[in-house]
Computed example of a mutant assay.
Amino acid sequence: MSKGEQTRSRLLDAFQDLVIEHGERAGTLAATADQAGVSKGGLLYHFGSKDALVQGLADRLEVFGAAEEERLSGMPEALEVFLRESVAADQPLDRTYLALLKLGQLDEHQAARDALVRLDDHFLAALTQALGDADLAFLVLRVSDGIYVRTALGGSGVLPPDSVDRILALLASLPR
């Protein structure tokens, strides 16, 4: 990774952390530059506006989503892996997702909403390929959303330990 790419990544990390921890209004250009340890001029070289930072996070999520689609699409156990990985964690994809989710709640950040829809599209494509059924893939995607939200709100302890096993058994019993 070049020095410029490292700086861009630090700026995006700082912006997403500010949004997650303190809300959209805290993610100012000055606060982002300060948190990243970059001058405001350095930030403006890479991201000319707050909208450009939001777009940078959207682009980052697109990269994560495309990689996940590719990884899951060729995996025989994609359903199990996808549901087990739906438990919220403090991973880079999760952090970017959470920041865009907060940003997407505001009318002025359509790019955030679009990025979240594209992530869903990546997951849906991978699950449809793995399951051979678009409707079942959609159901699994929505179930995984529930697992994610539930665990994001209270950690993995908010789900009974065998929840994913029970969901997988139920899905396996459905006719295809």
Rank of each mutant, 00 (worst) to 15 (best):
L170M: 14
R71T: 01
L61S: 08
E68L: 13
A36S: 03
G37T: 06
E21Y: 08
A78R: 09
D51Y: 13
A112W: 08
S9Y: 11
V38K: 09
L93H: 12
V81T: 15
A111W: 10
I167R: 11
D120E: 14
R84F: 08
L136G: 06
E69F: 05
G154N: 06
K102Y: 07
Q110K: 00
D107H: 15
L29Q: 02
G23C: 02
A130K: 04
G23E: 09
L139Y: 08
D13L: 00
T7D: 01
P161T: 07
K40G: 05
H22E: 14
V164N: 05
L119C: 09
L119T: 07
H46K: 04
F82I: 02
A30R: 10
A89W: 15
F47W: 03
V63R: 14
I20L: 13
L139I: 04
G56A: 06
A152E: 12
L83Q: 08
S73C: 03
H46T: 00
H122E: 05
G48F: 05
E85Y: 10
L79N: 01
D165A: 04
A126M: 06
M1P: 07
E68A: 08
A137Y: 08
S173L: 12
L168W: 05
A66I: 09
F64R: 12
A169F: 01
D165N: 02
